[in-house]
Amino acid sequence: MTVALAACGSAKEAGGDSKDDKKKTGPLTIGLLLPEDQTARYENFDRPFVTKKIKGLCADCKVLYVNAKSDPSVQQQQVDSMITKKVDAIILDSVDSKSIASSVRRADEAGIPVVAYDRLAEGPVSAYTSFDNETVGKVQGQALLKALGNKAKSGKIVMLNGWEADPNAAMFKKGALSVLKGKVNIGKSYDIDRWLADKANEAMTGAISSLGKDNIVGVYSANDSMAGGAITALKSGGLNPLPPVTGQDAEIEGVRRVVTGEQYMSVYKSYLDEATAAAEMAVALGRGEKVNESNTVDSPTNKDIPATLITPVSLTKENIKDTVIKDGIYKIDQICTAKVKAACAAAGLK
């Protein structure tokens, strides 16, 4: 599923001028650069899905995979290594969208197209695929309002936003605030370093100390990993029952917490759809073909970047069967361990 952006000008045809003349047949080598290994999705879904889709399009193609483990300088070195190895295309999920721009430029100068994956890197990227990130924030904000009901203004909410270096984090926050502003009282708002659960735990602990446990009615957490850290802090702080907590990514632990009611919701994003778009773009660009997308986006450095955007879905206890189970992300027995078996049965997961 894709969604149209507000008018960004006519669609750009990626790869241009001299690159259009470089038509390549036969096997390709495609670099896949992922940003970190703290969030389960990258190793569990993105890497295998992208690799499988590339192989499905081009059985003889080779995928060179590296993970920057949250270090921008390491990722810059990894891009340089891909340039040295003369890969035909790069799929790049940037650690830091700004600092990677010079590396993207060097790849472009070497005639290697870069597909920005999940996060919109700065520099002359040839195409982009991600989710409609403002909509992600709106989905989270709407879910939190629904969970709060008539208690929305009876206390304070705490916002645990994503890492400032990730451009998606700003869009999640913008989307959430467009829904929440004026309808809740925001007691504390934090931008969490590298999306780390322990940093979210520290921030939540500080918020409880500052605001008082009886004054916190809800928690906006931008992803599941941070939600886990926040929930641990809420339990340690003596909040019982727990206030509604949002999340994102449908990580297995997050889904289990949704089943038990510790976490109110997550955001399910079809990594398979995103991986498919990235693989198709990378193979086409690697062959010297054009990418024609009706949607375009602008980065701070480049305009009219061809883009495929995937629509996110609010995941709650009620639709687990129709989302992550139906799409084959998890099996019921993977979610329903002994610890959550009773909650699974109550939710109809058996």
Rank of each mutant, 00 (worst) to 15 (best):
K235I: 14
A203M: 00
G237P: 09
Y190M: 04
G286P: 08
S270Y: 10
Q248S: 13
V217N: 02
K269W: 11
V267C: 12
N215K: 14
M204L: 10
G229M: 03
A275R: 03
L211R: 02
D214H: 11
P241I: 06
N223E: 05
W195E: 04
S221W: 02
L211N: 01
V245I: 14
V245M: 07
N223G: 01
A277I: 13
E262D: 15
E262Q: 14
L285K: 06
E262V: 09
E274K: 14
A278E: 06
S221H: 04
V245F: 06
S225N: 13
A203F: 06
T246G: 03
M281T: 08
A282R: 05
L211A: 03
A230W: 00
R257V: 04
V245S: 00
Y268A: 03
K213G: 12
P243K: 07
S270I: 13
M204S: 02
T205K: 01
A282V: 11
A275L: 07
Y220E: 00
A207E: 00
T246E: 07
V219L: 02
T232S: 12
V283F: 09
G286N: 00
A227H: 01
N215Y: 02
P243I: 04
L239G: 03
L196Q: 08
A203C: 10
Q263N: 11
L285C: 07
S236L: 09
S225M: 12
M265W: 04
P241V: 08
A275D: 01
L272Y: 15
G218A: 02
R194E: 01
R256F: 04
L242E: 03
G228L: 00
E280F: 14
A230M: 05
V267F: 09
A282F: 11
N201S: 12
G206Q: 09
M265T: 15
V219D: 00
V259P: 07
M281K: 09
K235M: 00
A277Y: 12
E253D: 15
T232M: 04
A279T: 14
S221Y: 01
N223A: 06
D273E: 15
L272V: 15
A277D: 14
Q263Y: 13
I208R: 01
G237L: 06
L211D: 02
Y190W: 02
V267S: 07
T205E: 04
S236E: 12
D198I: 13
K269I: 12
L196N: 09
Y220W: 11
R256H: 10
L285T: 05
A277G: 14
Y220I: 01
V255T: 09
A277L: 03
D249E: 14
S225I: 12
S210L: 08
L242D: 08
M204Q: 05
E274P: 09
A250W: 02
G247A: 04
G237S: 10
V258M: 06
V267D: 01
V255A: 05
R257A: 12
